[in-house]
């Protein structure tokens, strides 16, 4: 008798794994419904930028009843993120498989080769950010004009930034200025590392997004000298001129974060997710917990708009590859 009870428990334990993977709700009306769980892939490990935005989205969506089905977040950083991208592009339950996607991921995807946007369905863009060039307040240069002057005199300039989108915007900048030989790009693992290098005077310029540099600008340790955008930034970055003010063409490579789905996702599902993420982006929690903290403004774009922006970025990245 006792043996039977123990065996039952064991069977239950095994069955639990099955239930865990299968659990979900059935459709009960004519509208589009998600079957089973939503698999939300993140191509970086826990704690990174993509992970934080994904967990904020899923949190808000579940808490406010925007999406009933449970989300399962998969952090799959293997193969430089390419594994999770491949998994999503060929997912079988296409309607409920999502991937957190940013312009940095796109650059990496193009560099790695094998996959393009044609393998996915772009869904939404939720936030966008642009870059600035910074110099050390006690460094050799105090404005971008001085730097260009030094370049004319044959000086070499070291520029620090991350491997993904900042590298792309750096290349675009060099092309516009014609300074490919005078500027050397030093790759750092994260924005804070490149700013640390700037603080230690190991590079002359650091390219960064405003959020990572905010504190240092307020404290007066570093100065924004160039806005890589078509318009100036808000305070405290408003002292940095755009390239057109300096007599060049403006250069920008907006860094966006959004969500894409599998290639075979149905049109109903695309509409459903676009609507769901729109609702998420309109919540107060999203404003307070995500946008304000990262010095961003709401940038919701639906499938068509997002698709246009993503393809444009893909073209820029492919041109450099």
């Amino acid at each position: 008798m006792k043996k039977n009870i123990i065996l039952t428990v064991l069977v239950f334990l095994l069955a639990a794994t099955a239930v865990f993977a299968q659990g979900g709700k059935e459709a009960d009306d004519g509208q589009f419904h998600i079957k089973g769980n939503v698999d939300f892939y993140v191509s970086s490990s826990s704690g990174g930028g993509s992970d934080i935005i994904t967990r904020t989205i899923t949190d808000i969506a579940s808490k406010n009843g925007i999406v009933d089905a449970p989300f399962i977040v998969y952090n799959q950083p293997d193969g430089n993120g390419q594994i999770s991208r491949r998994t999503v592009s060929t997912a079988r339950n296409a309607d409920s498989t999502l991937l957190c996607f940013s312009s940095g991921d796109l650059t990496a995807m193009i560099q790695n080769g094998g996959l393009t946007l044609d393998d996915f369905r772009p869904l939404v863009i939720l936030a966008a950010d642009k870059h600035l060039c910074f110099v050390n307040a006690e460094g050799k240069y105090s404005s971008f004009e001085e730097i260009m002057e030094a370049v004319k005199n044959g000086q070499k300039i070291n520029v620090g930034g991350t491997m993904s989108d900042e590298r792309v915007v750096f290349n675009m900048l060099c092309e516009e200025l014609g300074t490919k030989d005078s500027f050397t790009y030093i790759t750092y693992g994260s924005a804070s590392e490149s700013i640390a290098a700037l603080l230690g005077n190991h590079v002359d310029i650091a390219i960064s997004k405003p959020a990572a540099a905010n504190q240092y600008v307020i404290a007066g340790d570093i100065i924004p000298v160039l806005a890589l955008s078509t318009t100036r930034f808000g305070a405290p970055f408003d002292t940095a001129p755009t390239l057109s003010e300096l007599g060049y063409n403006d250069v920008e490579y907006p860094m966006w974060r959004g969500v894409i789905g599998a290639k075979n996702m149905s049109d109903e599902a695309v509409a459903f997710w676009a609507d769901a993420f729109k609702k998420v982006s309109e919540t107060e929690e999203w404003q307070k917990n995500y946008l304000e903290r990262n010095l961003l403004v709401s940038q919701y774009m639906g499938p068509e708009e997002a698709s246009a922006v993503m393809y444009e970025a893909q073209a820029a990245a492919q041109a450099q590859n």
Binding site: K2, K3, I6, L7, V9, L10, L13, A16, T17, F20
Partner: peptide, 20 residues
């Protein structure tokens, strides 16, 4: 068998509980 099942439930339970 009795010992096997007890140990399995104990250890497997911890592993399943913590990780999964």
């Amino acid at each position: 068998w009795k010992k096997v099942i007890l140990i399995t439930i104990f250890y497997g339970g911890i592993m399943y509980g913590v990780f999964s």
